[in-house]
Amino acid sequence: MSNSNIEMNNARNSVYQLLSSLFAKELNRAMLEELNGDNAQAFWAQLATQPEFEHYVKTIVDTLANLNTDDDLLELAADYCGLFLVGNKHSASPYASLYIGDKEPTIFGPQHQQMLTFLQEKQLQLHSDFSEPADHIAVILAYAGHLSLSADETHQLSYLKMNLANWLSNFVAQVKKTDQGVFYTAVAKLTLAWVNSEIEWLS
């Protein structure tokens, strides 16, 4: 792989890791400062140069810029909680298993097992602070980032198609329907746009 390709893949990985971290847990003060920092702002700006990302990035950046108080952060945390930490049908549970298949199954199902197998193959496991099933969207995105650095394009493409693209749009629709704020809807839509662009590019 050329240096240029390595650089490109590092950039792709950064996007995956950023999206993963936004789904992984609520924003705290340190994350907010980082996301509002100069490097991140430049990163956001560069992302926004793509028309398909522009609108969502703007919403995200505007929201981040207006999170002034701890109470603002708590309100956002409540959005996060309502979407991702409770319930199923009427929230937007971030687990692949709840979207794949026609019946609503239980959590820690086959998709969880599938992701655990993937991780083990790459000598990876879930971080001990992350007490979630392995088919959580944050894990699927982080692993996609990992693959962008370590797997061939065919493999990456099939992974995205088999494990993310097949449920992502349903998930995003559910987030849009349930979100009380705008932030996580924008993050979800940005994720969908990003994954679509990836699939197009890898194809």
């Binding site: 991140a40 430049a42 000598q123 990876l124 971080h127």
Partner: peptide, 14 residues
């Protein structure tokens, strides 16, 4: 942009 995701610790570990 030299932006590296830091504080959102990765959900993955060795």
């Amino acid at each position: 942009t030299s932006y590296v995701v830091l504080s959102g610790t990765s959900v993955l570990a060795p």
